[in-house]
Design a protein around this nucleic acid. Sequence first.
DNA 1: TCACGATAGTTTAGTATTGAACTAATTGGC
DNA 2: GCCAATTAGTTCAATACTAAACTATCGTGA
Lengths: 135, 135
Amino acid sequence: MAKNDVEKIWSLNYRLMMSVITGVAPDVAGLGMEVKELFLLTEVEAHPHPAELASVLSMPKPTVTMYVKRLEASGFLRREIDGADLRRHRLILTPEGRKTMARGLALLSKAFGARLGRLNSAEQSELAVLLEKLS
Amino acid sequence: MAKNDVEKIWSLNYRLMMSVITGVAPDVAGLGMEVKELFLLTEVEAHPHPAELASVLSMPKPTVTMYVKRLEASGFLRREIDGADLRRHRLILTPEGRKTMARGLALLSKAFGARLGRLNSAEQSELAVLLEKLS
DNA sequence: TCACGATAGTTTAGTATTGAACTAATTGGC
DNA sequence: GCCAATTAGTTCAATACTAAACTATCGTGA
């Protein structure tokens, strides 16, 4: 594949993502959280420890600390010290956090889904497969 | 397509992009610019006016102002007042800017291309087509 | 067991980003 | 032609982010 195509794919994809994020930001803010905080919430169940979250989301550790602090203050998650390793904090979604996350994801799905809707069902599946290979 | 799949595609794609950006950031910094400044540079020829750049890149106007200021100070681009509309500034890549942009894109291509390399040629073309439809 | 290199998470201090308000120029309606 | 509404870009003040340094705990090897 020519270098130009790599750049083109990158540019298209980057602009798509930024545009969707910018579009949903005001609605998500209405739920009492920022978009990046929402992204963090969605990964909490799969990665309950801040260090993992930082790694998975390519976010600096102090940023995770701050987001977690805010999400905890808002009642969206709580922290427990991990008994097996007193350095680690296990993050747990509260029912309120789960509910608000679902609402936020619905907004995101709607915004991103509006773009995805330009693809037919087979194309969407194909895209999912391709992105999975890339991850 | 189920809502879950939309969310999954989103998550995979977001993490992919962030991971690539984080990976190339130190190398790009070595060229004397930030990754987001590089993205801005790559759109300058297609969108020579700051307001368009803000719109295309989903970036607030003051952010564009600052990036342009820094890129100009670094000698990567220069500004001309647009004769037809004295409010507008036309941005022009300098030869140095073009050269450095090419280097930055090469780094990005290498990092992103390393992921794209997991797809065969047909899959890469398919991905480009799908993303273009989404844009 | 104890010392030390590594890891989890936080704090601090400085930089980066951006919403709101601003100036300057343009456009459309009358 | 003139003025109100709109648009381009900037400034300022406030917030968000993050690199570096720190504390606490862990794990390993002698």
